[in-house]
Design a protein around this nucleic acid. Structure first.
Lengths: 240, 240, 240, 240
DNA sequence: CATGAATGAGTATTCATTCAT
DNA sequence: CATGAATGAATACTCATTCAT
């Protein structure tokens, strides 16, 4: 007699999440993240609008209209506006985490090379996930709502990873001794984020307004990547 | 015979701003920024709520209630919600600009010392203007609305200043030759902003949740200041 | 110890009016209708705006601004918005009544001539009091508010007068016998009013849009006057 | 793939209207004017309240409450208060136009008979559409807003029709030569309108206050019809 | 399974009026 | 005596969500 429609499943998911909320990612790791075409349309449009206008500034009406789906579909598929934004974070953050995990597991890279890879991982978001990057920035600036746990979790992992990376580098004598891993992480993430959200300003500064979005982002990515790598090399090794 | 009530004055101000919008700051430099007690209450509360919840997430109702003033007062004093947020930006950005100007005029500081002062100027916002810092981050992430011109203007000035500072340092042989001023600015601002908006996360990481807001911010400020100064010293001079 | 400011006086006036409301006009006939300059400015502006936008469509803010007086002055001088519109009606209707009285008293005019004078009296409003005419039309279309008593009163008087005029004409053999005075009054007033409020339309129809307001109204007045006089001559006397 | 919900349809309608606004009626002639029960309730209530209190005097709250529908329904169905009043005008004016068209096409009537029919057409509104008649009067007295184009259009058509009717009558020798069609139209419309909006006054004058609305309107209609027909017979033919 | 219709709570703003000065 | 400052109530409208079909 029970009808297990998508909505109920989402609801149950939520309950599980609450029950095991201290390791959010693990519990959702295996989550069935298979969305149909319409759901993907919604997610993509929502990501863009949430990024540009903020959670409250982007109405479900707008999202539905731009995604070319019925207004009721959003509540129907995701349960609520809040759970929609959660879905976006869940989806994207898993990607980030996967990237980090792979890098951690790699045993063959030199410490500096590994740091460069880490930088590239973050810088890549400038051109690949600019909307989501904006959402992350907004989310961190925000007091409430938004899946803070998820974000905290991934940030912690990242910090731990960089700490390990630096310690290893120091043990191998590749890095100088006096380094603060957390501050270094903040410099990578902060610089990357800031450049991502300031794209339009930088474009104006460099008179590149007629360049396509894609091309400009590629240009930016390379520039930032070089900047951070060079800077970190000096900072970590004291060699130019 | 003209009646110049507050509303009209605000309206005229707006017109002026539109007419001369290419140098926004200059036109408002001499603007009479004298607000009465109630207006200041509103501005402060609004700053906090806009910072935490975003423009659309903070309703005028909430602002009025928390500022303990009548709802109608906001429209009465500022004309509209949009003009309220503009007032906040105007007020705070003028402060930033003043700080920059003073630093520029100072002729007695060594290049590295001047850079350290610049870092301190930004880092100070972590403890002094955390709400406004959040607002700035949000504003830059946003597509439209918000006094983009004002922000663009102040960012340009800052960039020009750092460029000049670095060039001077290079001429004097104090700094290495291969430096990208714009990227360095982004690193300072990006790192500072990111730490400001991630305060709560860092507090958890360091198990300092029972510390007062004020104390923690002071601690953070020092930590970030040291980090950036040390990093910049190495990057600019290649000396540890 | 009593302070008899203007407001109180107006209030007392109101009380008197309620007490003797069955002959409104008489009680206000001797009313001190002496307004100072600012009051006259308000009355004139209010008349225009009420005429064009209706009672609720014209805000006291607008009226005060256009009349170049402080907003609080309207409440201060007239007590309320409602009492402001009443003052306008009172003032203007007394004029109408005075005109009618004078015509009634005139014993030397032939019946048809007297009717022509009556027509002219009404038609004159097209060019002289177009705003007030519009207000009257609105007032009659309205269910509530507005000094209906005043209007009813003046309309009754007018009807009585026309009835007397026609009866006299019939007695003297100047007019045909089968005439309905009330319907004839309605035709004069209805036609005049309709033309007054349709001025803009007629202007377009006749391609006189570049003519000044004043000139056009004069032109209209003559045209309507002739039309009504000619029509009434035939109707009253059956002679072309 | 386009979503054509009611709101969008209304929006498109509006765009069309703007694009072809010089022949408003034609573009809406085939417009699907099929309203559901709730929409009709709203339209009828709105007509009454707009008639009695004017556009600004009748709030959407009042309309919704009296029509026994949710407040949000009005925006939902009609888009805005302005578009609600437009819908009323559109609906009713199309009826008027249809009536006129049918009369024009009729080839078998004598000139005077045709004029009588025209009078009946207008007089009928006294008893059938008293509210809308009031709205029309208000609309014409108003400076701006309200679908002036629609009204201008129908007025022009009416004028043209009467002109043709009179010219035909003159050609056939049925009417006298010296006649001003536009003034005659104004007399019919003005008299009819004035009587419609003065109903309550006339009721008092004739001591018919206990009569039902319906009965009184019927009585009035006959009286006005006879008056105008008799008057026009004399005016047009110079025969009693 | 998907959706058009519907809704109560909420939005920013304007209103006429009051009151302390 | 006149007015700038202030306000509670009302304004039209939009919101995310629900529900019958």
């Amino acid at each position: 007699m029970f009808k297990l429609n998508k909505r109920l499943i989402l609801c149950l998911e939520q309950l599980f999440k609450q029950a095991f909320n201290n390791d959010v990612l693990k519990s959702t790791e295996g989550a069935i993240m298979d969305f149909n075409q319409k759901q993907l349309q919604i997610l993509e449009t929502a990501e863009r609008l949430f990024a540009m206008r903020g959670f409250h500034g982007a109405s479900v009406r707008d999202i539905a209209q731009e995604a070319d789906v019925n207004i009721a579909m959003i509540s129907y598929y995701f349960g609520s506006k809040e759970r929609l934004i959660e879905s976006i974070f869940l989806k994207r953050i898993l990607d980030v985490k996967t990237g980090l995990d792979e890098l951690v597991k790699d045993k063959h890279l030199a410490p500096l090379e590994k740091m460069n890879r880490l930088i590239d991982l973050f810088v890549a978001r400038i051109s690949e996930r600019p909307h989501f990057c904006r959402m992350m920035v907004r989310a961190q600036a925000t007091e409430e709502g938004i899946p803070t746990d998820l974000i905290t979790d991934v940030k912690k992992q990242m910090y731990e990873m960089v700490k390990k990376l630096i310690t290893e580098g120091q043990k191998k004598g590749a890095f100088v001794s006096d380094l603060d891993p957390l501050m270094l992480v903040n410099t990578i993430v902060g610089t990357t984020n800031h450049i991502t959200i300031s794209q339009n300003f930088l474009r104006k500064m460099w008179n590149m307004e007629q360049m396509t979005d894609e091309k400009f982002r590629e240009h930016l990515r390379e520039k930032v990547s070089n900047h951070l790598k060079k800077m970190f090399k000096v900072v970590l090794t004291h060699e130019p």
